[in-house]
Design a protein around this nucleic acid. Structure first.
Length: 430
RNA sequence: GUGGGUGUAGUUCAGUGGUUAGAGCGCCAGAUUGUGGCUCUGGAAGUCGUGGGUUCAACUCCCAUCACCCACCCCA
C-alpha cells in the first residue's frame, strides 16, 4: 500500500496553488494597507509558551497539542495557534522598545491540533493572522476586524456573520465568575457531564456548550456584559460605535467565550453557514495581559487568526469562481526526433524573453503534443518540423482562431511576444 | 475518546453466492500518412483495503483489522 499523508493533513496540489496565491496576495495587500508587516516564527515552540499563554485549563493545551521531548529532553510543541508565537517574538526581539504600536501579520502559518478530522477540521491547517501590539484603544480592535472583513469581501465572500462580545478584564472577571458559579450551582444537576466537570476548571466554557440541557440552563445565566467594570464597558460601547461608523454590520453575541484564556475585553468571531449550522472562519480578540504573561512589559494587544482552508471551503460553498492560471502560453512542438532539440532550444529562448513556454521532453506524436498543449491552455502553438527547419522558419498557430503563420526562426521570439501582447489587448477591450 | 458510513481500473462509481468483475471520465492509438477542442472506433489498465472463516463456489455472507469520510466535543 502506498504511503499516505498523515491523518488530518492535506497536500496543496498544483491545481490549488493559484487559489492559495490569490488569497495570500489579497491578505498581504490588505495587511500592508493598514500598516502591518510580515512576521514568521518557528513552527514549534517550548511547550511552556502555550501553557502560560493559551492557558493550561483550555482544551487546546489539555488534549489537542502535538507535544514531544526533543533529544535534549526539552518539551516542544507544534504551534496550536498563532498569537503566542508572535507575542514571544515581539518580546524576544524587544520590539516593544521601538515605535508603538507594532503591527504584524503572519501568512498561512501551519497550525497543529490533535483532533479527529472531519469536514472543515484538520490536524494541520493554515492561518493568516494580524496582531497589533501596544494599542489599548478600541480603534485597534476595529482596525483588525475591518481588515479581515475587507479581505473576505475582496475575495468575493458575502453573508458572513460578525459576532462580538466583551469578556471583561482582571478587574471585573472575579465578580463575574462568582455570579456565574452561584447561578450554575442552582442548576448543577441539569448540566451535561462535561459541563459538570467544567464548573470548577473553567465555568465560562459552559456558556459555549451546545448540549440542549446546558443551553436551557445558560439561557438565563448572568452575562459577562452585565458585569463589566467601567473601563471595559466604555471600551465595548466605543467599539460598537466605531464598527457602526465604519459601516460594519455586527451582532453582539454575549455567549461567545473563545477557547483561549488570554483574551480580555473584546472577543469576536466571523462565521459562515454550513449544513450543520454556523462554523467559525475567524476568531480573535484583545489580550491585554498576554505580553506581560510571556515576559514582556505590561502592554495591550489585539488580533485574530483565520483558517485559510475554511476560507476556501466557504468560497466553494458560495460558488465563487476560483482563479485559473494558464500553465504555459506557448507550446513548441517538434516534428520528428531531429526537431526535438531545436524545439527545446526555442522554448528556452522564449522563456528568456519572459514568455511562459513549454516543449515536449519525449518523442510524442505531433497530435499528442497538440492534445497536451490544449490541456495546458496554451494560446499559441509553435511547430518545428523538418520542412520548416530546412527553410529556417517555424509555424505559429493561434489556438483560438486556428490561423497559422510562418515566421523566420530568428524572429520567432519577438513575433510571439508581439502576438501575445496583441491578444492581451484584445482581451482587455473585448 | 464515542457513534455512523465507505473501501472494486488512474479516477468517480455499478456489481445481493454461480462463465472470463463492468460503465462514465481520463490515458494511449486509429479514423485525419504534418495539427488540438467535437464525433466515431479500438486498446492498455484490477492482489475487488488486508487477514482469517463459512461454502462445491465469495467482490457478494460472517469475524477481525487497517485506512478514509462524516458526526458528537471543541475549534480555524
Amino acid at each position: 500500500m502506498a504511503i499516505q499523508s498523515p491523518k488530518g493533513t492535506k497536500d496543496m496540489l498544483p491545481q490549488d496553488s493559484a487559489t492559495w496565491q490569490w488569497i495570500e496576495q489579497t491578505m498581504r495587500e490588505e495587511a500592508a494597507l493598514a500598516g502591518y508587516q510580515e512576521i514568521r516564527t518557528p513552527v514549534f515552540e517550548y511547550t511552556e509558551l502555550f501553557e502560560r499563554g493559551v492557558g493550561d485549563t483550555t482544551d487546546i493545551v489539555q488534549k489537542e497539542m502535538y507535544t514531544f521531548l526533543d533529544k535534549g529532553e526539552r518539551s516542544i510543541t507544534l504551534k496550536p495557534e498563532g498569537t503566542a508565537g508572535a507575542v514571544r517574538a515581539f518580546v524576544e526581539g524587544k520590539l516593544f522598545a521601538g515605535a508603538l504600536p507594532v503591527k504584524v501579520y503572519y501568512l498561512n502559518a501551519p497550525i497543529f491540533r490533535y483532533e479527529n478530522p472531519q469536514s472543515g477540521r484538520l490536524r494541520e491547517h493554515h492561518q493568516f493572522g494580524m496582531e497589533c501590539f501596544g494599542a489599548k484603544e478600541p480603534t485597534a480592535d476595529t482596525e483588525v476586524i475591518a481588515s479581515i472583513l475587507h479581505i473576505l469581501h475582496r475575495l468575493g465572500l458575502r453573508d458572513l456573520g460578525t459576532h462580538i462580545n466583551s469578556i471583561g478584564c482582571p478587574v471585573c472577571r472575579p465578580g463575574y465568575h462568582q455570579a456565574l458559579k452561584e447561578y450554575l450551582h442552582q442548576h448543577f444537576d441539569q448540566l451535561c457531564p462535561v459541563c459538570k466537570d467544567r464548573f470548577d476548571k473553567n465555568p465560562l466554557r459552559i456558556l459555549d456548550c451546545k448540549e440542549e440541557q446546558c443551553i436551557r440552563v445558560t439561557q438565563n445565566a448572568p452575562l459577562t456584559l452585565d458585569h463589566l467594570c467601567e473601563e471595559c464597558d466604555q471600551h465595548f460601547k466605543s467599539l460598537k460605535e466605531l464598527l457602526t461608523a465604519q459601516g460594519i454590520a455586527f451582532k453582539v453575541n454575549p455567549k461567545i467565550v473563545r477557547g483561549l484564556d488570554y483574551y480580555t475585553k473584546t472577543v469576536f468571531e466571523i462565521t459562515m453557514q454550513t449544513s450543520r449550522g454556523e462554523l467559525a472562519l475567524c476568531g480573535g480578540g484583545r489580550y491585554d495581559g498576554l505580553i506581560q504573561e510571556i515576559g514582556g512589559p505590561a502592554m495591550p494587544g489585539v488580533g485574530f487568526g483565520i483558517g485559510t482552508e475554511r476560507i476556501i471551503m466557504e468560497l466553494t460553498n458560495q460558488g465563487i469562481p476560483l482563479p485559473q492560471v494558464s500553465v504555459s502560453d506557448v507550446f513548441v512542438a517538434h516534428l520528428g526526433e531531429e526537431a526535438l532539440v531545436p524545439a527545446f532550444t526555442l522554448a528556452q529562448a522564449l522563456r528568456r524573453g519572459q514568455i511562459k513556454a513549454d516543449s515536449d521532453h519525449g518523442k510524442r506524436s505531433l497530435k499528442a503534443q497538440f492534445r497536451f498543449a490544449d490541456k495546458l491552455g496554451v494560446k499559441l502553438m509553435v511547430i518545428v518540423g523538418g520542412d520548416e527547419m530546412s527553410r529556417g522558419v517555424v509555424k505559429v498557430k493561434d489556438m483560438a482562431s486556428g490561423e497559422e503563420t510562418e515566421v523566420a526562426l530568428d524572429q520567432a521570439v519577438p513575433y510571439i511576444q508581439a502576438k501575445l501582447n496583441e491578444n492581451k489587448e484584445e482581451a482587455r477591450h473585448g
